[in-house]
């Protein structure tokens, strides 16, 4: 037995901290979170660990205005499906942005934040959120939506 969140977060730490998924050497598909089986190739698939570059575009998004208690301090917050440059999507909060500026196609990069606290005395789960690319993220100033970084 383990305290709430401890083992379930710990065993995913690599994936959550560094966006580590896998790619199938047979068909070239990328997966995040890592999949146990390549759904395209099944037994012919050859999955290898792959750390994503952490760059992508917003595929769809919303502003959460009603959330469970542990997200109250952050409300309202932006959450999105981010399409990573490698071609797979994940779900993450978008931070360091004004709500009115978020749009489909916006360029974003991964940053490191607190994801969830398992109560005040419980463990803290850290991991990826995304923020718009800009000078302070080490990217071109005001990269416009849909325009990919070199």
């Amino acid at each position: 037995m383990a305290e709430q969140g401890v083992a379930s977060v710990w065993r995913r730490i690599k994936a959550i901290y560094t966006i580590q998924g896998n790619m199938c050497k047979t068909c070239g598909s990328y997966y995040f979170p890592p999949r146990p089986v390549c759904p395209e190739c099944r037994r012919k698939g050859k999955l290898e660990l792959y750390t994503f570059k952490g760059l992508g575009t917003i595929y769809s998004y919303t502003v959460v205005r009603q959330a469970p208690e542990d997200f109250k301090r952050q409300m309202p917050y932006v959450i999105a499906q981010v399409e990573l440059d490698e071609g797979t999507r994940l779900t993450a909060q978008i931070v360091n942005v004004d709500i009115e500026n978020v749009e489909i196609g916006m360029r974003v990069r991964a940053c490191f934040r607190k994801i969830k606290e398992f109560g005040q005395g419980g463990i803290i789960a850290y991991g990826y959120k995304f923020e718009p690319t800009m000078k302070v993220t080490g990217h071109k100033e005001k990269s416009s939506p849909k325009q990919k970084e070199p």
Binding site: S8, R12, P33, Y59, S60, Y61, T62, V64, Q66, A67, P68, F71, Q74, Y77, I79, A80, Q81, L90, T91, A92, Q93, I104, I115, K116, A125, G127
Partner: peptide, 29 residues
């Protein structure tokens, strides 16, 4: 929320309405 993928959607702050909002936003787009 546990009807969606709790470990990779719910835990990251995607409430159930948020997931349907993704669909709505994309449908509008």
């Amino acid at each position: 929320s546990v009807a969606s993928d709790w470990e990779w959607e719910g835990m990251f702050g995607a409430t159930f309405p948020a997931l349907y909002a993704f669909m709505a936003r994309r449908h509008m787009y």
